[in-house]
Amino acid sequence: MGKAKKNKRERTFFLITIVPLMLYLLLFVVPVFMGINYSLTNWDGLSGKYRYIGLGNYINIFTNKRTVKSLLFTGKYTILLVLIVMVLAMLLTLALTYLVSKKLRTFYRSVFFFPAVLSLVTVGLTWNQIFYRVLPAIGEILHSDLLSKNILGSPKTAIWGILLVNIWQGTSIPFIMLLAGIQNIPADIYEAAKIDGANPFQLFCKITVPYMLPVINVAFVMVLKSGITVFDYIQAMTEGGPIQSTESASVLIYQLAFSDSKAGLATAYAVILLIIIAIVSALQMKISSKFEVGQV
């Protein structure tokens, strides 16, 4: 290749990257730093003036009753969501792989995956109407006290209503990932282990799980992130109520920033979420890479 031609090639490649890079710097990198900057101020989000207050907002988040409550809610919600979704996705994967014929498997797969294509808000609003109108109507027919109350109406049970909806929709993608993962395990390994006298439980623990660990890992982090940042469902169903009992971190951040004029505090809270997600993802990667090395 001639030198002039090579230079031209290099210039073209460079020019290609300019527009995306500029957009990315302007709309992602700059806002992140703006956010970190705001998080150190008492800015209300409206006026042009603000004052730097150091780590005041961060201290506030861990001492203020409302923010602590929302952190605890988000933690509880995320743990329950991850546990239930992962177990359910794994059970569905095993059931479809070992109990169901190939033809039916395609049918079940289509049905269980379908919720993934719907909008979270629409799903939330639909279930909201179901909790509000449909289930109480069924409860009346069955004379069941449990059903005739709106599950979202009481501070004690509202979290379960939201979880149910999130699980209804949020299991589909982890499930389809695990299903793809289990189909990639070579069949002869199972055969060899069976000849050695392994029982189904041993097969599951010693072959299925280790082989699927990379997929489980990705699914886990994905569900975890969706739990920590849960917003659409709650905004569509309870808006944080009743009595702030379902105020997740993201819902409170939105409230603080756009209703309570506490943009500084809101961004500080968002930065904390970012840090939590980064730490948990890194930890998860580290732990599972250890296991993967262990099984080879």
């Binding site: 992602f28 700059v30 806002p31 992140v32 703006m34 956010g35 705001y38 989000g45 992130k225 920590i228 940042t229 917003f231 971190a249 993201s250 951040i253 939105y254 920033a257 943009a263 809101a266 961004t267 809270y269 968002a270 930065v271 979420l273 970012l274 997600i277």
Partner: peptide, 9 residues
């Protein structure tokens, strides 16, 4: 990065 970090800015 969670979108919440970018929301206000």
């Amino acid at each position: 990065a969670p979108f919440q970090v970018l929301m206000v800015p």
